[in-house]
Design a protein around this nucleic acid. Structure first.
Lengths: 114, 114
DNA sequence: CACCCATAGCTAGGATTACTACCTATCCGC
DNA sequence: GCGGATAGGTAGTAATCCTAGCTATGGGTG
């Protein structure tokens, strides 16, 4: 398992939604967008991406449609209205979460001096 | 379950280590430090904190010792040398992770306006 | 033609981990 | 005596990411 395998937990959905915010994409393209957009850090296996997309679709946050390109079938997804709302909320949520963690990670105020 | 129940996954350990970096603490005090230091955001149940501390102790990152204060037994933990190293690595890891996520969450370069 | 790789999609099961719910015990205030 | 805060703990559940495997097409190579 990757070193930060658990690190993504709970944050993958917002990354997928954010990627789709740049326009409709199919799963494989989303996977590549995350890899390239993160400098290779989020090179997710398909077994992570596809189930997550299904989860988002079941939740009504994205909607998918089949098409065929070069003889290969594709499922393209786009954000629903609910997905847009969710993305906005999750973005704010991430900011707060990241701020809280970063603050706690700062070396504490040592009670030595003074 | 809390809204961001999964958000902490993989990040709790570094928070515990960082709290102990400010000096030895017992579990209950750590729990309060995280709550207060996060503006109430990380108000973790004891069923989250204690098992996590046991995990870190098993991993050799912290070491605990029993004491009795006011008739109540306490288990105080402090970072081991390995724990210090782990904390440094995890802090760097968090910075990279947070940067990657934040970058991906930034509104994409819209091809509309200029 | 046979074969492999990249593209594109999918699933079952395992592993990890935070949470819920519950328990024990002491001290203090009412 | 009783409840609440302090202090510690466990068992079992839920969520979700990963591993490993599968199907299928098109293009390139031997």
């Amino acid at each position: 398992m990757r070193a930060d395998a658990q690190a993504l937990k709970g944050h993958l959905d917002v990354l997928l939604l954010a990627t789709l915010n740049d326009g409709p994409q199919h799963g494989y393209a989303i996977k590549e967008a995350l890899r390239d957009g993160s400098g290779g850090r989020f090179d997710l296996p398909t077994g992570t991406v596809y189930p997550a997309l299904h989860r988002l679709e079941r939740a009504g946050l994205i909607s998918g449609s089949w098409s065929v390109v070069d003889g290969r079938r594709r499922r393209s997804y786009q954000l629903t209205a609910e997905g847009h709302k969710k993305l906005a909320g999750e973005r704010a949520n991430w900011r707060e979460f990241a701020t809280a963690v970063t603050t706690l990670l700062e070396p504490g105020p040592w009670p030595t001096a003074t």
